[in-house]
Design a protein around this nucleic acid. Structure first.
Lengths: 217, 217
DNA sequence: AGAAAAAGAGCGAATGCTCACTCATTATCG
DNA sequence: CGATAATGAGTGAGCATTCGCTCTTTTTCT
C-alpha cells in the first residue's frame, strides 16, 4: 500500500515556499488535529490559494501524510545520530533522554502530531507511516539490550524484547510529558510546577530508575 | 468551571434505556473520536430520536463529557478496590498490572477514550475531567512510595514523586498497549505476534523491571 | 528579434455534502 | 384534556474539493 504524499508540482516550487507550507500545516495540524483542521485556512496562512494547494497535494490526507512524513524523518535522524556513536548502553540512553528534553521543546509540534496519530483510529494509510519509525526504534533498543547482555553489562535473567519495550515506554511518555499539554499538566501534578526548569533532576532520576532496572543486582 | 453533563430528563428514563444510550455512545466515540462522531447516528443506534437525545443532553459535548465521566468512574473504582487492601507495595503493583491486562480487554473502549482525550487539544472542559482522575492516581502512587520508603521497603536515594511518575508511565503505556490498535501493534513489534496470549510473561517481566528499579541494591 | 500561440501555475468563487442543532407536529400519559 | 415526552424533517454553518478563469512564462513561427 502506498501513502498519498505530494504531487510533482510541489517539488517544483521554491524551497522557501515549500517550507512555509509545511511549517504552517504542521503548526495547524498539531494545534487542531486532522479532522478539525481546515485546509482552506492552512492555504491562506501559507500565502497560497486553495487551488494551488490542491495542485501540490491531491487531498487533505495527502497533505497530512506529508507533514507526518517529515516529522518522522526528523525524529529518526536525531535517533540515528545518537545510535551511530559507540558509547555504551547507559550513555546512549542518557543522550536520548537529553535529546528528548531538548528536542521536544523545539519540536513540540512534531510530538503532538505523533500523539494524535496514535490516538486517532486513522486510516491504515497513516498508521503505516508510524509503523515505519516504530520498527526502527524497536530493533534498535532490542539489539542494544541483547548486545549489552552478551557483554555481561546488564542482567541476563530478563527478556530483552520486553525490557526494550518498557524502556521505550518510559522514553515515549517522557517525550509526551515535555510536548503535550495534557501530559505536561500531569507531570506537574506529580513533581510540582517548577519541574520543567529542572531537566537535570528528571534526567538523573530517570537514569537511576532505568539503571537499576537493567543492572545485575 | 462546571462540565456540561446530562439534563434532568435523562435521569427520568428507564435504566435500560440509559445504559443503551451510554453504551452506544461509548462505542461510537471510542471508534471515531469526538470530532468524527455523528450524534445523529448515535441517537439512531440507541433507538431514540435526535430530538430525544437533545432533551437528555444539551450538546454533543455534554454527551461526550457524560460518557467520559462514566469511564473515569469505572477506572477509579477498580483502582480504589486494589488500593484499599493492605497488601504491600509490590503486591499492589502486581494487582494493578493484572487489572490493567484483564480490564483493558474488557474496557477497551474506555481506554481508547482516555487516549483520545489526552491527545486531542480538547477544550478545557474535558481536560478538566481528566485532571480529576489523574490527581487521584498521582496522590496514590506518590504516597505509596513515600510510605514504603519510610518503612525501608524501597531505596531511599530516590525522589518518590518522580519515581511514582515513571511507574505510572509504565502502567499507562501498558494499558494503552492492551487497548489501542496502534500500541498493540507496537507491542507485537517488540515481543512477537503471540505476546497477547501470554499475559503472565508480560506481568512477570514488568514486575522484574519495576522491582529492581525500586529496591535497594 | 518580435509577435503570436500554447502551456500551465495560480486564483478563489461556487458546489455539494456532512452534520449539530431546532421546532412544528404527534403520541403518551395522568 | 392538558401536560409532558418523543419524533424526525428541516435549517444553516462549516468545509473539502472543483473548475472556469487570469496572468505569466515558455515555445513556436515569421
Amino acid at each position: 500500500m502506498k501513502l498519498p504524499l505530494f504531487n510533482e508540482s510541489f517539488t517544483k516550487i521554491s524551497e522557501e515556499k515549500r517550507n512555509k507550507i509545511l511549517q504552517t500545516a504542521t503548526d495547524y495540524f498539531a494545534e487542531h488535529g486532522f479532522e478539525s483542521s481546515n485546509i482552506n485556512i492552512i492555504a491562506k496562512n501559507s500565502g497560497i490559494s486553495i487551488g494551488a494547494m490542491y495542485s501540490y497535494f491531491s487531498s487533505k490526507e495527502a497533505l497530512f501524510s506529508t507533514v507526518i512524513h517529515y516529522a518522522v524523518e526528523t525524529l529518526k535522524s536525531v535517533m540515528d545520530e545518537i545510535m551511530k556513536g559507540d558509547d555504551e548502553l547507559l550513555t546512549k540512553l542518557e543522550k536520548i533522554i537529553r535529546a528528548v528534553q531538548v528536542n521536544s521543546r523545539t519540536n513540540v509540534l512534531y510530538t503532538k502530531l505523533y500523539g494524535q496519530l496514535t490516538a486517532e483510529n486513522r486510516s491504515d494509510l497513516t498508521s503505516q507511516i508510524v509503523a515505519d519509525i516504530e520498527s526502527v526504534t524497536t530493533g534498535l533498543y532490542t539489539s542494544l539490550l541483547e548486545q549489552a547482555q552478551k557483554e555481561k553489562k546488564i542482567r541476563d535473567d530478563i527478556d530483552p524484547r520486553l525490557f526494550a519495550f518498557f524502556l521505550d515506554n518510559l522514553l515515549i511518555t517522557l517525550q509526551f510529558s515535555y510536548a503535550c499539554t495534557y501530559y505536561r499538566e500531569r507531570l506537574k501534578l506529580y513533581a510540582g510546577e517548577d519541574i520543567f526548569s529542572d531537566d537535570d533532576l528528571v534526567a538523573k532520576e530517570l537514569m537511576k530508575f532505568i539503571k537499576s532496572a537493567l543492572l545485575q543486582n
